[in-house]
Design a protein around this nucleic acid. Structure first.
Length: 990
RNA sequence: GGGCCCAUAGCUUAGGCUGGCUGGAGCACCCGGCUGAUAACCGGGAGGUCGUCGGUUCAAAUCCGACUGGGCCCA
């Protein structure tokens, strides 16, 4: 969507990508890399298994980049990655929904009619339907995992491990059945867990009604309680009203002369114009008052239809009275149970009213709202009825509105281990660090029991059998299942519902025949088991400890409620250890204007399209250079620019090296001799610094700092080292120096290719291959199989400081050049620095660098009192903020310097022309030149130099302001005309 | 209603923990330059009440409080 007009793809980058990708495919590098060093120390990692039924979005690109950076780094450090397996979350509603949609099923009845076994079989077949999209995205972005042997949460060994863990929880009293109010999806006809609900809150509009409850009994006549609700459909299930003991209530005059009671705090909200107050009560005084239920369908029962007291009531919203329907809400359920009033649930599995409430029989709960309100209004019981916009939970899978509903369900007693989870979490390195004690830490401390069972089909079956005596037996392995069922399991036993539903076991307590509880479990339990279940723990021997904490996990921030959470619950419950020691989160991905991406808004960026346009390295580099823990904007232009700046520049520098070093033959190993040249020593010092910074950053699981270090290094390399060193690479005057420069550049590029490898695997590979004489042709070899670079001990802080000084002085000089209006090409006589001693660590080299960069004949450093020697007529002055003179620059070039400038200008133009004409470096030419006036004179005096530098065997020079004949290029230098034509000699002398 | 994060040039942002010297940088814009790496590069310029108000201090973008706006999470 955001490709819009223009924005040409970075051709160079994607071409590089294609070439590198072909090389990897040809040589099988990924497969050799992904497991790391077989004998190295263990680095525990687990891929968070995506649902293979949903397409990846850009957020996954970000999370996978974060994972891949760390894995590449650890491999280069010589670790063995355990495990590099890809993984798929195969079970659950997403899969079922797809199969239901395919057949047009509307409810569980349709599934039952179709046949549970057939249904599950179709689920199994469709479960990896979009896995190939994930695989090709990962391949393109170079997220290297073993996709040939992934772990699947639906495999029998995996399920057996999950059963083992369930039995362990069961034996420890952490897996129990209860009747509790749970979020329930009417479409899926199953309860959800509280952390699943957290995934589905959104804005919606609901009725907001205030209803009159008439007090009954001898003192009740003419008095009503005002009760506010946003769920009128729960009114037929009302059994109690809650008030708060210490709250002040008032009775005001109602329209028909009756008294209406509400909290005093709510008075001004309800009746801004004021109402005469007839009576005052405390909540305590209202307790036990009987009332007439708004609907009669629940019928009488002990303790029903009276006011009770509870501290959860407050008057900030509503009227200070809360209507209690014990079947429909956690608080309602608690109060109802405590008061012993029983429950009344008139809804069927799909949340449709049964015949228990005739006026709305056959209506879904939502559709009943207006009908019930209308019925109450007819009886004058509706005080007001409005619409309210608020956040409300929806099913995160099917998007249907949820209800709270009291149900039989199996729970993981998370509350019992909350303290342990907090303790284990305290040792985790979180990125960003505030999550540990902040959002996630608090979430753990308040952990609710985990509603584990699902009334569904395609999932890990809950391995619990119950006998008529009510004893539960939890089965922890297939062997135990066979033993308790009294018969061996069939060949190819499928531990899904089809394989276990029919089995009757011997009760572990009383020996009576027991039937299986008809539930599957929450798919989040499956994925939370991944660290150990992928190894079929504890059933198979392992050379490492599959129960040990992972060394690294990284996913989107939303997984704090999902996978990060369930892994921690299980590691704490099973092993009393943290599930991971380092946990990196990525922020929500936004579109380029900062809006949340959504399918309905049409602003979602498809990850494959992004990879098509930018290649993989630009998004990777872009993600890693910014604060990826905050909401991340996908700004393709910014990504392209950031990639150009660092990755592109590094590529250019590599091409420059290859071009120049080609003549000498490419070195294959970095030179061991210590560098002598100041620029070389400076560059290698900077390289050590960069190596240290990148290493520290990746060790801290926060790659951003390292990306910045690389960026600064590449800038220094390109805009200072290379610019100042260029002549060293092609001069013949000093072959030894040339070799030293080549060695330094090689060493720098080679090291950078390794430092960059985790971040931008394609560019890094390209650079590394270009540095080899046999690049891209070798049968093997890859920067991704190389070892991480160490520091060379060449750090020289005084030298770096001195170089900073010089670069500051360059800026002073450039500003002066700008003012004197003499372009750099024309040399000037002198640059004089006032009161700035030469930076110690560079000595005389400092002035040589300045002279070269500013193109001046001499650099002098003098004291303030020598200022008089430099008259203002000849020298331009630069001053600091206090008005003190800091530097001087000659204003005008001497005729000789001007001639020199003309020659260099001419040479440059002609060199460019050589290149344009496609001549090779050593091709010899015949040259014809015409130039006017002073330009002609300058060139004439430098014929020999022209001939030598341009490899011209003949130079035919004439004076004139226009070309002697056709086929000439013309230029204007300092207002003087120059024209030239060159032709390659047919036979180049050898 | 509660918690967390955030607010710096037209846009993207560094700095904030450890208060102090003209608040850095990139993109875009204007001017100039360089170019044997070139769909690159360099210099200069213009552009900022560092969200608002108050407090602490000799001194606040930075520390504290309130408010406003945005994001996320919870209820």
């Amino acid at each position: 969507m955001s490709s819009e007009e223009g924005a040409p793809p970075t051709l160079a980058l994607t071409e590089v990508q294609r070439k590198v990708h072909d090389y990897w495919t040809r040589t099988g590098v990924p497969a050799r890399a992904w497991g790391g060093s077989p004998d190295g120390p263990i680095f525990r990692f687990t891929e968070g298994p995506p649902t293979a039924n949903g397409a990846p979005h850009v957020g996954h690109l970000l999370a996978r980049t974060l994972k891949d950076v760390q894995l590449r780094y650890r491999r280069m450090r010589g670790y063995r990655i355990v495990s590099p397996m890809a993984g798929w979350d195969c079970h659950g509603l997403p899969v079922e929904l797809e199969v239901e949609k395919r057949h047009g099923f509307r409810s569980k009845k349709d599934i039952e009619a179709f046949g549970v076994a057939r249904f599950c079989e179709e689920c199994r077949e469709s479960t990896l339907s979009v896995a190939s999209v994930w695989v090709s995205m990962s391949d393109r972005m170079a997220y290297w995992l073993d996709y040939d042997r992934p772990y699947l949460t639906m495999d029998a060994p995996y399920i057996e491990s999950v059963w083992w863990s369930l039995k362990t929880l069961f034996d420890r009293g952490l897996l129990e059945k209860g009747f509790r109010s749970l979020p329930y999806c009417p479409r899926c006809e199953t309860p959800l867990s509280s952390h699943e609900v957290a995934l589905g809150y959104r804005e919606t509009t609901d009725p907001s009604a205030t209803v009159r409850f008439r007090l009954a009994g001898p003192n009740g006549a003419g008095r009503t309680l005002l009760v506010w609700t946003t769920t009128p459909w729960t009114l037929p299930a009302n059994l109690l009203i809650a008030a708060r003991a210490d709250l002040a209530y008032v009775g005001v005059e109602g329209p028909d002369g009756s008294e209406e009671i509400l909290a005093e705090a709510a008075l001004s909200r309800y009746f801004p114009d004021g109402r005469p107050i007839r009576a005052r009560y405390t909540g305590r005084e209202l307790a036990e008052l009987p009332y007439e239920p708004p609907f009669p369908f629940a019928g009488p029962g002990p303790g029903r239809y009276r006011v009770v007291l509870d501290d959860m009531v407050d008057a900030a919203e509503g009227t200070g009275f809360v209507h209690i329907a014990p079947s429909f809400g956690p608080e309602d359920q608690r109060i109802g149970e405590w008061q012993g009033v029983g429950a009344f649930d008139p809804l069927d599995g799909r949340a449709v009213f049964t015949s228990a409430v005739p006026p709305v029989q056959g209506k879904s709960f939502k559709a009943a709202d207006p009908i019930l309100l209308a019925a109450l209004a007819e009886r004058g019981l509706v005080e007001r009825s409005e619409r309210l916009q608020h956040t409300y939970p929806f099913c995160w899978r099917c998007d249907h509105a949820l209800i709270y509903r009291a149900l039989d369900s199996w729970f993981v007693r998370t509350r019992k281990i909350a303290e342990g989870m907090v303790r284990n979490n305290a040792t985790v390195t979180w990125v960003p660090d505030y999550l540990r004690d902040g959002r996630f830490g608090r979430f753990l401390a308040e952990a609710k029991d985990w509603a584990l069972s699902r009334n569904r089909y395609w999932g890990t079956p809950l391995p619990i059998w119950v006998c008529p005596g009510g004893h539960a037996t939890c089965v922890g392995s297939f062997a135990e299942l066979a033993e308790r069922s009294g018969a061996p399991l069939p060949d190819g036993f499928d531990p899904h519902r089809v394989g276990v539903d029919g089995l009757t076991l011997r009760c572990a307590t009383c020996g009576a025949p027991a039937r299986r509880e008809p539930y599957t479990i929450d798919g989040w339990y499956d994925s939370g088991s991944a660290p150990f279940a992928q190894f079929h723990y504890p059933f198979e021997p392992s050379p490492f400890d599959p129960a040990a904490p992972l060394d690294y996990v990284a996913e989107g921030l939303d997984q704090t409620r999902g996978w990060f959470y369930t892994m921690l619950v299980l590691s704490t419950a099973l092993f009393d250890r943290p599930a991971y020691t380092a946990c990196v989160t990525s922020g929500l991905v936004l579109d380029d204007s900062g809006a949340k991406m959504s399918k309905s808004k049409g602003n979602a960026v498809a990850p494959m399209a992004l990879l098509d346009r930018l290649g993989a390295d630009a998004p990777r580099w872009g993600f890693l250079s910014i604060d990826y823990t905050a909401p991340v904007r996908i700004d393709e232009t910014a990504m392209r620019q950031a990639a150009n700046r660092t990755l592109g520049t590094l590529g250019h520098a590599t091409a420059f090296f290859r071009q120049n070093a080609a003549a000498d033959g490419l070195p294959t190993v970095p030179a061991a001799t210590p560098p002598t040249d100041a620029l070389d020593r400076w560059l290698l010092s900077r390289l050590d610094d960069t190596t240290e910074r990148v290493t520290a950053s990746l060790d801290a699981f926060d790659p951003r700092e390292g990306a910045l270090a690389i960026r600064e290094m590449v800038d220094d390399l390109s805009t200072w080292y290379l610019r100042r060193s260029r002549p060293r690479f092609w001069g013949d005057q000093d072959p030894a120096d040339r070799a030293r420069a080549n060695a330094t550049l090689f060493r720098t590029l080679e090291t950078l290719s390794r430092l960059l490898a985790p971040y931008a695997p394609y560019t890094a590979e390209h650079v590394a291959q270009e540095l080899r004489p046999d690049g891209f042709h070798a049968a093997d070899g890859s920067v991704h199989l190389a070892r991480w670079p160490g520091v060379a001990g060449l750090r020289d802080l005084p030298l770096e400081a001195a170089m900073e000084e010089v670069r500051t002085e360059v800026e002073i000089g450039r500003a002066l050049r700008q003012r004197v209006q003499v372009k750099s090409r024309i040399p000037l006589e002198s640059f004089v620095l006032i009161g700035r001693p030469a930076p110690g660590a560079l000595g005389a080299e400092a002035d040589r660098l300045l002279a070269g960069e500013l193109n001046v004949r001499s650099v002098a450093r003098v004291g303030t009192r020598d200022l008089d020697r430099y008259p203002e007529a000849e020298f331009e002055r630069s001053t600091d903020a206090e008005g003190r003179v800091t530097a001087l620059l000659s204003r005008t070039p001497s005729p000789e310097l001007k001639r020199e400038g003309y020659v260099r200008e001419t040479l440059r133009r002609l060199q460019a022309l050589r290149k344009e004409e496609g001549l090779a470096f050593l091709d010899r030419i015949d040259l014809v030149v015409a130039a006017e006036g002073p330009l002609f004179e300058a060139i004439d005096a430098a014929r020999a130099r022209l001939s030598e530098e341009l490899l011209a065997d003949s130079v035919d020079l004439t004076e004139g302001d226009r070309p002697p004949s056709v086929g000439f290029r013309t230029w204007s230098i300092d207002g003087l005309a120059l024209s030239a034509r060159l032709a390659k000699r047919s036979t180049a002398p050898s």
